[in-house]
Amino acid sequence: MDPIKTKIQTRSKETRQEIWGQLLSYAAIILIVAVVCSIFMFVASKGLATFTKDHASLRDFLFTTDWSPTTMGKDGRPLVGALPMIAGSFGVTVLAVIFATPFALGTALYMTQLAGKHGQKLLQSVTELLVGIPSVVYGFIGLNVVVPFVREHFGGSGYGILSGAFVLFVMVLPTITSLTVDSLRAVPSHYQAASLALGATEWQTMYKVTLRAALPGILTAIVFGMARAFGEALAVQMVIGNATLMPHGLLTASSTLTSVLTMGIGNTVMGTVGNNALWSLALVLLLMSLLFNLVVKWIGRKGRI
């Protein structure tokens, strides 16, 4: 028998490695998919129980403002009006991102287009540092600095959506900045060269060419910032006042989905209507983060050249 012929027909170390590697990666994928699916299923089954088992109405949940799950309304259904929390969550998120985006854009433009090596390094480490600060520290600073500041300069008790937005502003700033930096760096330098060669100034080039080319990346950065703001619990909870009332302005005490969740989940008993209602809030959060992800995907597809 020809030894080469035998060799190429039998399994060797390489084929076994190949199979083993494939098995490992498939196992990892299956595990991750299983974890994600079970999280969704778990939260969904708990969250939907409010409506199936406890007979709360979905319409009440989304559009009314009475949050008192353990008491029954006139129609015999539990009062699970989550609109105040939904409004609070959106309020702090949108405001924080509106505050943060201009600063993030400016910082990112400075870092990529204007700063020298040292400036870049310095700002890079500053933004990285901001990411690393634990949220309880942000909350604590918010409590001691932002709340009195808002009380003195804007009025009210100082607790409310505005304070939450200020704290979140600092927290989402590094997220938006660093993703914007990445997308600005990805703009091919020949775009800038072409623009400058046409006699455009640095500013015109930055504003009309570089920023435009990086726009999909910047939008993605903003959506990621929103996702971060929407999901933040502790720091917001410390400054927002935690009243499950419909916010009447930016300065009255209100609450977010996350703050009600963290405050309440330890004080309710598994399987009761109060507990299930909190799971419904968690389901809303989960669906929102799914939505943010889909938006990012969609922007990515739109922006591809």
Partner: peptide, 26 residues
Amino acid sequence: MRKQIGMVFQRPNPFSKSIRDNITFA
């Protein structure tokens, strides 16, 4: 000065805009 002394580069580098906007940009 660069408006008087224009330049064309090695790699075609149109902006990711429409044909018309590429020309009217400057």
